[in-house]
Design a protein around this nucleic acid. Structure first.
Lengths: 189, 189
DNA sequence: TTGACAAGTGGAGATGACCTCCACATCGAT
DNA sequence: ATCGATGTGGAGGTCATCTCCACTTGTCAA
């Protein structure tokens, strides 16, 4: 896909620094009040360097988003390797809500910045969907989850939760949806 | 709320012209490639006039959005006055999907431009919710619809449809959801 | 180690979009 | 018809964005 060129050691370090600072600023919600150039100084690099790595605000958001998705997928794989399938699924979904709750600012900023980039969002969504599909399939295989409900359904629920993150008591509602989904998925009988 | 000052006749005309051209450009999806100043010329007014009426791109989007919501609410009231309640509800929901389908560009542009302005979206949502609530309540009153499902549920479905408007076969899925909702609402027995 | 080439950096300054400002035009009440 | 009030347009200032290139730093072979 992206033919990741081997980056020189210092370049990689600067890149990480930019991403780290970006996550921080995104989460604080201060990103839109900030000149892009000033963001460079804040991360301790020159303007040119910032632009070399991330030509636009959106490119930066995209990189952070990809990181986020990758982390989520890793966690899914890890859970799947260490827990019974049903628990892995539950743990993953609960953890996802926790994560969103703990980083509302980041979620909001990413959503705003990528409103135009639906292609990118879709791609990330597919990666996530694959992870969820695996989790569900495993749970179906060992019989703890019914086999007539696809991962797509779970994805739609997650999508709804993500889209609604400015509702007043989002956390409670989100937990409710997850509970509902998990209960609904449990094998009848 | 907004103490609508009586606008001078010519001012009102320019304002309408701006809104009309905005709807057109939004729908064509060309708005983001366009300098805001050039948009003014395109609508046949000077820069100053544009800025007087709409200080920012977002303000313009907001006005268009309000117009859209108002039109929708009007249509709801009109349907309610001329059709049996259940048909009014069905007609309204179908019409909404039709409208979104016919103006995908507009929907996308508005969604992108207002990604940051969740307050405005929420306000519009409430107005729509009121209209839907009325439609549902009327249908409940004359017994064609069960009374244990709130308008909130319908709103969530609409929200989902709106949020997903870049899925490949959006139209079919949206129709499916509406059918599902309408069937689900029909009084059991 | 050291030299040499490639890779990466930073920030001064050009660029061009955004928005302000105000001299002028137009409206509408008397 | 006159006159305030209201609205207009576009020239030009301001400022964020992004480019460019002289310089620094990393890497590797000898």
């Amino acid at each position: 896909m992206t033919a990741d060129k081997p980056l020189r050691a210092d370049a990689r370090r600067k890149r990480e620094a930019l991403l780290a600072k970006a996550r921080e600023v995104f989460d604080a919600g201060d990103f839109f009040d900030l000149r892009f150039d000033d963001f460079a100084r804040l991360a301790g690099v020159g303007t040119g360097t910032l632009y070399r790595h991330f030509p636009t605000r959106e490119a930066l958001a995209e990189a952070v988003y990809h990181g986020e998705v990758a982390a989520l997928c890793d966690r899914a794989r890890q859970l799947q390797a260490t827990l019974p399938a049903a628990e892995a699924l539950a743990s993953f979904l609960r953890g996802m809500v926790d994560h969103m709750d703990a980083h509302k600012g980041l979620a909001r900023t990413l959503a705003t910045l990528m409103a135009g980039r639906s292609g990118v969002l879709a791609e990330g969504g597919r990666a996530l969907e694959q992870a969820v599909t695996d989790l569900v399939a495993a749970a179906v295989r060992d019989g703890t989850v019914r086999n007539d409900v696809g991962a797509g359904t779970v994805m739609m629920a997650l999508h709804g939760i993500g889209a609604a993150h400015d509702r007043p008591d989002w956390r409670a509602e989100a937990d409710g949806v997850i509970t509902l989904v998990l209960d609904g998925l449990r094998r009848p009988l």
